[in-house]
Each structure stands twice: as C-alpha cells, then as structure tokens.
Design a protein around this nucleic acid. Sequence first.
RNA 1: GCCCCCGUAGCUCAGCCCGGAUAGAGCAGUGGCCUUCUAAUCCACCGGUCGCAGGUUCAAAUCCUGCCGGGGGCACCA
Length: 543
Amino acid sequence: MDVRDSLIDSVRAVLTRLGVTPDPGVVQVERPSNPDHGDWSTNAALATAKAAGRNPRELATALAGALTTEPPPHVTAVEVAGPGFVNFRLAHTWLHDLLADVVTAGVDGWGRFTTGHDQPIIVEFVSANPTGPLHAGHGRGACFGDSVARLLERCGHPVSREFYVNDRGAQMRLFADSLAALAAGADAPEAGYHGAYVADWATEMPSGADPVEWGRERALADQRAVLESLGIGFDAWFSERSMVESGAVEDTLADLQWAGATYEDDGALWLRSSDHGDDKDRVLVKSDGEYTYLLPDVAYHRDKFARAPRLVNVWGADHHGYVARVHAAMAALGHQPADLEVAITQMVGLRRAGEEVRLSKRTGEMIELREVVAEVGADAARFTYLLQSVDSSQVFDLDLVASQINENPVFYVQYAHARIHSIVSRAAEVGIERVPLAAADISLLVHHRELALLRTLHELPDIVRWACRERAPHQVTTWVRELAALFHGFYHDCRVIGEGIDDALTQARLWLVEATRIGLAVALDLLGVGAPTEMWRQEEDDR
RNA sequence: GCCCCCGUAGCUCAGCCCGGAUAGAGCAGUGGCCUUCUAAUCCACCGGUCGCAGGUUCAAAUCCUGCCGGGGGCACCA
C-alpha cells in the first residue's frame, strides 16, 4: 500500500476513536515543502476541529498522541506544529520500499492506471484545412493533443486520434482555383490563397490534374509529413466530403429537424442553438443551398459519439466562439454537452533573432511548422510546445530553442537520461553486473541527494493522474525538469562507480539510477520526446 | 457591449482544481567547483506590494465580487 494511503487510514481510524468522524476526503496527507515540517503532514485536526466543536491544537495533540502510541508503518515520530498541523517523520525505509515499487513496475507500469476503465475517448486535434502547410501555431495543438492522448492511454483509455479534414466547401474551392490559376500562368483570385507555397505547388501539379483532388492530396501529404516528423500519427483522417457522399450529413440534418431544433428563415435553415446556451441561432444551410461549416462538423461529432462516449477536441483560441454552437447541436441531438470536451490552446507567437515574427495568413508571412522542426529539431519543438500551460499564450523563441546551451531545458532533461546510460555503460566496461534487487542493500541509500530523487519519483503517479484529468501535459514537463535537476545533483555528489565506492553502495546506486531512468523515460514518453542514450555537444567552430 | 484566456522575481513561467505553516524554478546578474561515471553538470548569493480594491475565513497567490491592463472571439467564413 502506498504510504499516503496508509497514513490517511491511520489518521481516520484515530479520529473516529476520538469521536470525530471526518467526511470522506477531508483528511489530507501531503508532503510539506519545508523539510522542517516532517516527511508527511496532515491538516486533519484543522479541517475537522470546527465541525466537531473542538480546539484544533488540542485535537491535533490528541491525534498525535494516539499515533505515537500506535505508529503507522515507517513512522518514527509524530509532532504537532503551527495552528494544528500533525507532522510525521518517517524512516527512510518508506523510500527504499518505493524504489522497489518503481523498478518492479518498470517503464511500462510506473504511473500507469486503469482508472479509465477501458472507456474509449476520441481526441480530435489539428484538423487544419487541406489548403496549405501547417504553421507554427498548429504545432502547439498537435503536440498538446498527442500528449493528452498519451496521458489518456496511460490512464487506461483506448484512444483514437483523429484529424478532421475539411475537404469541401468555399475554402477548398478557393484553394483549387488559386492552384489552377497559377498553373495556367494567371494570378490567384483576389480572395484566394497567395502564399509562396501555392505557386510552388502549382508548378508541381501535372496538367490535366483536378486541382481540387490534387490540391487536397498535396496539402494532406504535406501536413502528414510534418506531423510524422514530430512523431504524431492519426488513427483517422476523417473526411468531410465522405460524410456528404455517405448521406451522413443529410441524416444529421434530418435528426435535427426531427428533434424540432431547426427552422427556416430568409431562405436559410437555422439551428435553434440559443435554446441550448448559445448567444444566437446559427445557420446550418445557407440560402444558396450550401452547408455552413457547422452542419458537416455536427455530423462528424454525431459520428464520433456513435463510436465513443467521450470526446476531446483541441481547438485554437480563435475557435473559442464556436464551442457553444457545437455543444448546442449535441444537446439537440440528445447528447450530454459535457461529454464533448473542448480544450482551447492559446496563441503562439514566434521570435527569431530577437524580433517578434507575425503569423499572418493574409500576407502569406507565416512560419511553417516544418521550418520550426528543421530549425530546432523534433524533440526540442515538442518539449517547448509542452513547456507551459496552453491557457497562456506562448512566445516560441526559435533561436533559443535551437541553441544547445544551458538555457534550453529539453537538453537538460535529455542529458540526465544520457548520463544514466553512461553510468550503465561504465559499469559494463569495468565488469560490474547489477545484482538482483533482492540481493542489493537499498538501505544504504541515505544521502540527501538519493532520498530527494526517491521522494520525487514517488510523485509521478499523482502527476500522471492529475495531468490526465486536467488535460495538462505541462505538469509532466514541470515534473521531469525537477527530476532531471535532482539527478544532476546526485550525479555530481554521489559517485556510482569508482575508487572508494563500496561494492554494495554501487549496487544500491545502480538500482536508484535505474529507478530514475524509469521516471525520466515515462515522462519523456508522455511528452513524446526522445530519451537519448548519449548526447555529445557539438564543438564550437574554430576561431 | 457580451464571452474566453492571461496578469506571480529584470525576463520566461510553475503553483490556483481541493485555502494553510518563511511563495518556487529556469534564464539574466554576482561569486565559487573539473587529474575521478560526458562541466549541455553542480553550489552559493542577489532578486517578489502574487495587477488593484473589497468580501468570505482562525488562515487567501489560491475561493467570491468589482475594477484596471494584455491577448483572442462574437458571419448565411472556416
């Protein structure tokens, strides 16, 4: 049993005996940030005193007294502090037990949960129009969506990653017209696409090709390639056009009409989205008979709900206003809007040579995602996109992220992993073989660096669960930076192999290093970032 | 005008779910550590009215209200 749970159980049992019955969840046991406050601490007395009509400090004293008489596992001392905290001091054995748990679970099992209960989830992300390359802004949604999917998988959900392809309608037509015009030596239409890539692609297009078909494939191939370079793949590229062809769009419309959720006005067909929380009603079929973007998208969500009970969409901040109408449409179709979760990623700005780079489709002045990956590398790109909460807008500094200097956190973390491999290689070189865990004396690990590593490794399962629930991969990034920092400190102060290092200590440390490797590997995998076994700094140019 | 996100150290950001005991990290700045498993490392110092004002509470960066900044959105575009 996890230490925290055993402490909570003990505290609850004692409180009950003292005549205080705590509500479920009110007894919290946490690791204080200040080591003076013990290894673990509970605010149980503070949290329950009021309801029980007792003085917190007095209740805490009674609690501590009882826990001292019958200490929970590993506990060596119980103290009352401050307004009524009860602090526990534990023998290092709790951390030594933890090490065994980590290495037994391994990369596959440590921080893995079955809490998802095999409930399928469809994560839709990127879903850019097939009218051009992905730009730097798409990178954030792509890395975020994929990492959220990885977190969900680790928590026991079967996940389908999906990309909605908006391959028909006005934008698609404009794109095809632009390609055709340029291929014919003319100018792209005023309202068409003017990026440099359009001209390039137009020269590639074989004469006689259908610009819609060819353009769609060209754009998709381009998008797919850059996503693959980031290690991001999709289970489905869901075509809007296919739903028109299959009749799914018409079926959806019929369902909405059947539900009484539509009406005609000004020659258009409207959705009564304001009945379900939207600001106003929205057009489904324009007066010219053409569908709006909304209707096929509703059809797509209807299809997704037929395949999974829970949906996660990752949308850019510029689509925020669209959330209410899709939720309304789902409600009209009889679904729980809350089962369609929309994660909004705030904007990404680029900086290069210290200058802010504007991302503008208008002027065609945009930095493609491909350029970002080429300049900084896939690992650095992913790590950087996942460095902070997607609730905050981000400035992506290309020069900084491309640099192999210590300001760049991705190398710092990867280097920790590489160093571990280097220790393992060293052990092999000098003929040291790691003995089985049961044969190693883990109790030799008492250095504060060693203990700090173990304490932090203990947090990973909580981090994974929390990051998954909150759809917040940056929590993993924050945690892994911390673990890497602790490892570098350990590496500096605690030699694993060498003169004067006792064989038994070497063995214990080899196991600690293995546990750390597991933590780094799990976290980096959740982020989709590689865990290199060696890294060599590029030599500076001469002169 | 309405809706959403953000406002924490010089800079970039964690922490806010679920209120607690001196508010954390990286970078920048200053000063230290390499004959030993890769110094892309490590250590110390410096640095903060947690946007502002109220409220709730024994206790507020954290919860509530209002305001002020910054960003995004409010189409028969997508």
